[in-house]
Design a protein around this nucleic acid. Structure first.
Lengths: 144, 144
DNA sequence: TCATATAATGAGAATCATTATCATCAACTC
DNA sequence: GAGTTGATGATAATGATTCTCATTATATGA
C-alpha cells in the first residue's frame, strides 16, 4: 500500500468512516487521473463497476473527510481532485471549448513568486484566504 | 448612454440580435454587480421583472455575442460576468463555504508579474492559452 | 467464529439548474 | 400602419446531483 493510500486510510478512520472497496476504487481513479474528474467520468473510468449514485455519495464522503476537493467546475459539471495535502499544490489548464481540465505544476521559482503575489492580494482584501489556483484558459490539443 | 452601453449595443448589432429591454436589464445588473452572477441571482436582483427562462436565454445570447462570459462555476451553479474587453481584466475571490465570487483587480505591477508568469506557463504546456485568472479561495466576510 | 449492531450500497425517485418548445407578443422594415 | 421576423414567457423536457430505503457488507465483542 502506498504512503498516500495509508494517509487516506488514516484520515477516513479519523473521520469515523470506512474505507471500503468502492471508495478505494474512486480514490485510485482520481489518483491516476491527470486532472479533476466528474462523477460521470469516474463512473465511466471504472467501467460502471461503481454505480453512479455510489460515486456521488463517495465523493461527498471523501470531500467531507478532506480527502478530495471540488474544483471550480466548468459548464455546470463539478469535478473533484485529490486534496492538495495529498496530491501536492498545483494549478489548472482549462479548455474553454470542451471543459477538460488538466493539472500543471509550476517550477519552484515561479510558484514562490506566485505565492508572494497571492499573499499581497490577500492582504488587500477583506477575505480570509485558504488557498489559491492559477487558472489558465485555452484550447486543449483535441479542441485546437 | 454610457460608452460601455454603446459598445454592447454595437456588438449585439454586429451579431444581428436586438438589444431589447430585458437584455438591457440583465446587462445592467451584471455591470453593477461586484462579481459573477448566476441566472437565479440576476432574476432575484431584477425582482423577477425578467422571467428566469428569459434570463437564461439572454445570458446565452450575450455569451454567444461575446458580451458576457461564464465563470468557472462553484457548486454546480454557473455564474456570468461582463466580458473582459468591456469590464477590464480582473481576478476572483471565491468563498469556499457559500460559493460567492467577488472580483479583484491587481495593482499594475502585480498584474504584469502575473502576466509574465502565465506566459512562461503557456510556453511550458501543449495548450493554446486564451486568458487566465488567479482564483483565491477563502472565506467571505459573511461566512468567516 | 458467530451474532449483532451499524455503516455502506444500489436502484430508483426526487430535486435543482438549465435548455428546449411553442404560442403569443414586440420591434424593425417597407 | 401592416407585415415579417425576432424576442418573450410559461411550461415541458433534460441532465446533473441528491435523497430514500430496503438490502448487503463490515467491524466488534461474546
Amino acid at each position: 500500500m502506498s504512503i498516500k493510500e495509508r494517509q487516506v486510510e488514516d484520515r477516513l478512520h479519523e473521520s469515523g468512516v470506512r474505507y471500503t472497496g468502492g471508495r478505494r476504487q474512486v480514490v485510485a481513479a482520481l489518483e491516476s487521473a491527470d486532472g479533476p474528474r466528474s462523477a460521470a467520468e469516474l463512473h465511466a473510468e471504472l467501467s460502471g463497476k461503481v454505480p453512479i449514485s455510489s460515486v456521488y455519495r463517495t465523493l461527498s464522503v471523501l470531500e467531507e473527510a478532506g480527502v478530495v476537493a471540488p474544483h471550480h467546475s466548468v459548464k455546470g459539471i463539478t469535478r473533484y481532485e485529490i486534496a492538495e495535502w495529498l496530491a501536492g499544490h498545483h494549478h489548472h489548464l482549462v479548455c474553454v471549448d470542451c471543459g477538460a481540465v488538466e493539472d500543471i505544476e509550476l517550477p519552484k521559482d515561479l510558484e514562490s513568486e506566485l505565492e508572494r503575489l497571492v499573499g499581497q492580494v490577500s492582504r488587500m482584501s477583506a477575505f480570509t484566504s485558504t488557498g489559491h489556483s492559477l487558472e489558465v484558459d485555452g484550447l486543449c490539443t483535441r479542441c485546437d
